[in-house]
Structure formats: structure tokens, C-alpha cells
């Protein structure tokens, strides 16, 4: 295969799969997934004591997704005909994998965790979406390795927030006890997920297309 993503004559794999297999940092992704499993096993074994590791695992999940969107040779890759949208789609295999690991961990231990499985699944989806949105947005702005910076902040910051739990009543990011405001936690994580989708959509929007407002005006009053 050449740098444009076109397969070599003898390459049978789909270009997306071929690109994903080579572009995603599988060692980091694998190590991250293994650690998420390990952390969630500890959480499932002693949820009351190990709960800070749930928030830590969420930060790690976001970090793994972020690392997968680093493009070290951005100066070259950005000049090639494969768009950021295409490349992001290929690299999203890491997101799918890490989310699958997260859901599998939750399902394997659902009887040991508080009875709020949908919220925990939402947390994973929102953390992954936020990482994808921020890194793709920074990539679209020209930063070659936004994942490295994002992961360096989000992983330790999540661990610190999970350990400290500042203002846990007003900001229940990682609720555990039955008396906590689970509904507010759901609202917070839904907002994170929604905001991530908006940022992602804007970052991946076709730059050459006319603005949304202009298209709306044209649809009402066609230019003669």
C-alpha cells in the first residue's frame, strides 16, 4: 500500500482495516485495555473500597482513545487525499475495542456493582466520545499529537477527581452510594456525550462546503 491508502495489488484487506491495523498504537491500546480490566476486577471485588479505580479506569479509557488519534507524521498525512474523516473512522477501531472491553467488564461484574449499569455504560461512552471529540478537533486545528497531551491530563486528573471527589453532592461524577444523586450524574454524563458529538461534528465538517446558514438561505431562495 502507498501513502494515499490505496492497497497494494497483493493486499486483500480493506483500506480502512489496513490503515487501522498500522495507524493505531496497539501496544498502548492493549496495555490500556488490560489495565482497565485489572482495575475493574478490583472494583468488582471490593466496590466500597476500590471505587476510585472506576473513575481512574474511565480516565484511562479516554486516554487510550486519545492516543489512537495521534498522527506523528501529520505534516505529510495532512497533504494526502485521505480526509481526516476517513482516518478518524479507521482509527475509531480503538474506540470500539476499548468500549467493548468496558461494557464487558460491567456485564461480567454487574451483580457486584451498584444497580446503575446504564449510567456506568454512559460514563464509558461519554469519556470515549469526549476524548475522540477533543483530539479530532485539535487534529483538525493542525496539532499533530493531541492525544499525548490530552491523555497526560485526563488520566491523572480523572484519578485525582475519583480519589478526592470534590463537591460530591453537587458534582456526582463517580457516584457509588445509594444516597447519592444518580440522576444528576446521568445528566452530567449525558451533557458530556452531547457536547462531544457537537464538537466532533463541527471538527469533521467538510471545510469546502458552504456554511449551514448559507445553505439554509439558498434552499429557501435559490440563486438564479
Amino acid at each position: 500500500m502507498n501513502l494515499t491508502g490505496s492497497p497494494r495489488p497483493n493486499a486483500s484487506a480493506h483500506p480502512l482495516a489496513w490503515y487501522a491495523a498500522r495507524a493505531v498504537p496497539w501496544l498502548l491500546t492493549g496495555a490500556g485495555c488490560t489495565m482497565i480490566v485489572g482495575l475493574m476486577v478490583l472494583v468488582g471485588r471490593w466496590p466500597g473500597v476500590m471505587w476510585p479505580l472506576e473513575g481512574t479506569a474511565l480516565g484511562l479509557l479516554a486516554g487510550v482513545v486519545a492516543w489512537a488519534n495521534d498522527e506523528r507524521c501529520a505534516a505529510i498525512v495532512d497533504t494526502l487525499p485521505r480526509s481526516l474523516r476517513w482516518r478518524t473512522l479507521a482509527r475509531s477501531v480503538a474506540l470500539g475495542l476499548v468500549l467493548a472491553v468496558w461494557i464487558a467488564c460491567l456485564l461480567a461484574q454487574w451483580h457486584r456493582l451498584p444497580p446503575h449499569l446504564p449510567l456506568f455504560a454512559l460514563q464509558g461512552a461519554a469519556a470515549a466520545a469526549a476524548a475522540l471529540a477533543v483530539t479530532v478537533w485539535r487534529r483538525a486545528a493542525g496539532s499533530p499529537e493531541p492525544g499525548r497531551a490530552f491523555a497526560s491530563v485526563i488520566i491523572p486528573a480523572s484519578a485525582a477527581l475519583a480519589l478526592i471527589r470534590p463537591a460530591a453532592r453537587r458534582l456526582p461524577l463517580f457516584p457509588i452510594w445509594l444516597g447519592e444523586d444518580w440522576a444528576r450524574g446521568t445528566v452530567i454524563w449525558t451533557a458530556v456525550l452531547g457536547a462531544s458529538f457537537v464538537i466532533l461534528t463541527l471538527a469533521l465538517a467538510d471545510r469546502d462546503a458552504p456554511p449551514v446558514l448559507a445553505r439554509l438561505v439558498q434552499s429557501v431562495r435559490p440563486v438564479r
Binding site: 489495565m35 485489572g38 479505580l53 486516554g63 488520566i155
Partner: peptide
């Protein structure tokens, strides 16, 4: 290397929680 420091920080947090006297 990329990712080593955040991952070691996570490992440290996990080990410290296990060893906090509980």
C-alpha cells in the same frame, strides 16, 4: 515513552489503594 507516566500513575494509585491499611 508515550503513555508510560500516566499508566504508571494509574498503577501507583491502584497499588496504594490496596495497601492503604484496609
Amino acid at each position: 515513552r508515550r503513555g508510560v507516566a500516566p499508566m504508571l500513575a494509574v498503577l501507583l494509585v491502584a497499588v496504594v489503594i490496596v495497601m492503604q491499611g484496609l
